[in-house]
């Protein structure tokens, strides 16, 4: 009990997520032969590398009491635009290509940001509309063509699988490592840097934040621009990993990124949560999907049903538990005041 009140709720949440991850790993290692090996780590890490970036951006937006449903379309557009740039100019500097992907994503994000923060249209309406708009922009831009991996230079398609370092059998590949670094940088900023704390302030109480001299409009604008940036970078990773890009690239990523954030303990009403949580949420979602496919007891078609139940369970326990914890803390502080 002492531990429950001493640790911060955020830290408890991360510990609970790690515990659930460990339980899932232990459970499936008793069910699937040769489950816990380096290949599992590689498989999960290469697909999480993309979702982790999107979920990080989504978390920033959700922290400010908004939602970004357009990320899937931004990933698709960025992947396609980056792919067609490099196939037309094969000798392009990799850094310029990366900057291009980032710029495309940020541009879309800023458009959302202007409409939400300054025109004050509810984010769910803006991004519902821009999800459709960006996708139709992609259809127009693609001109019924698609990108194939043969038209991409080798350095790009090799990049995600390039080993950086290994821990035992776990090989940290470049794609995953890059994502991890981005997540850690954003986490550091959110917890240590004053400007980034404004995301929490605006999300937990917009009026109080305004009175404290925070420009809430600018903060919300920044959250959407950053979400676009993350989706743009994810588009680059998507291109590098899959190589073949059609107009449906990234379809459905918006709901998956919201799911990752919510499972990771980010409060959908804003003001609390962490990108590390969202990162662990993305890993948990992916781990379950991958493992259920290989589990012989149920058909692979169970994975979505289980995933839905998991999200409901995660949110229910999180909400009920934090209510209890708040009551417990209130009682304790009352006792110590006596």
């Amino acid at each position: 009990m002492a531990l429950l009140t001493r640790l911060s709720p955020a830290a408890l949440r991360l510990l609970a997520l790690l515990a659930v991850l460990a339980l899932v790993l232990i459970f499936f290692s008793t069910q699937i032969e040769g489950y816990l090996n380096g290949r599992l780590f590689n498989r999960i890490s290469s697909s999480v590398a993309i979702m982790a970036l999107i979920a990080t951006g989504q978390t920033l937006v959700i922290l400010t009491r908004n939602i970004d449903l357009s990320v899937g379309s931004v990933v698709g557009f960025s992947a396609f635009a980056t792919g067609s740039l490099i196939s037309n100019h094969p000798d392009l500097n990799p850094l310029i290509l990366l900057l291009y992907a980032a710029a495309v994503g940020t541009g879309f994000g800023m458009l959302n940001g202007v409409l939400v923060a300054y025109a004050r249209i509810p984010s769910i309406i803006v991004t519902l509309a821009s999800m459709a708009l960006f996708r139709s922009a992609l259809v127009e831009y693609s001109n019924a063509k698609s990108i194939t991996s043969e038209s991409l230079p080798a350095w790009l398609t090799d990049f995600p699988n390039m080993p950086v370092f290994s821990l035992g059998a776990m090989e940290f590949r470049a794609g995953f490592t890059a994502s991890l670094v981005v997540v850690l940088i954003v986490h550091f900023a959110l917890t240590r840097l004053r400007p980034a704390r404004q995301f929490f302030a605006v999300g937990s109480n917009p009026e109080a934040a305004e009175m404290a001299g925070i420009d809430a409009h600018r903060t919300i604008f920044a959250a959407f621009a950053l979400s676009g940036l993350m989706a743009g970078l994810a588009g680059f990773m998507f291109l590098a990993r899959f190589g073949n890009i059609t107009v449906v690239a990234g379809l459905g990523f918006e709901l998956k990124s919201v799911a990752s954030s919510v499972v990771g303990g980010v409060n959908i009403f804003g003001g609390s949560g962490s990108v590390i949580g969202a990162f662990l949420g993305a890993i948990l979602v992916d781990l379950l999907e991958t493992s259920l496919v290989r589990w012989a007891v149920v058909s692979e078609f169970w994975r979505e049903a289980v995933l839905g139940a998991l999200i409901l369970l995660a949110v229910t326990t999180d909400t009920l538990f934090s209510r209890r914890l708040a009551a417990l803390r209130a009682r304790k502080s009352k006792e110590s005041a006596k």
């Binding site: 709901l255 169970w302 979505e304 049903a305 289980v306 995933l307 839905g308 139940a309 999200i311 409901l312």
Partner: peptide, 10 residues
């Protein structure tokens, strides 16, 4: 959102 995924799964 959870039941969107869950019902589809069933």
């Amino acid at each position: 959102l959870a039941t969107l995924i869950g019902f589809r799964g069933l």
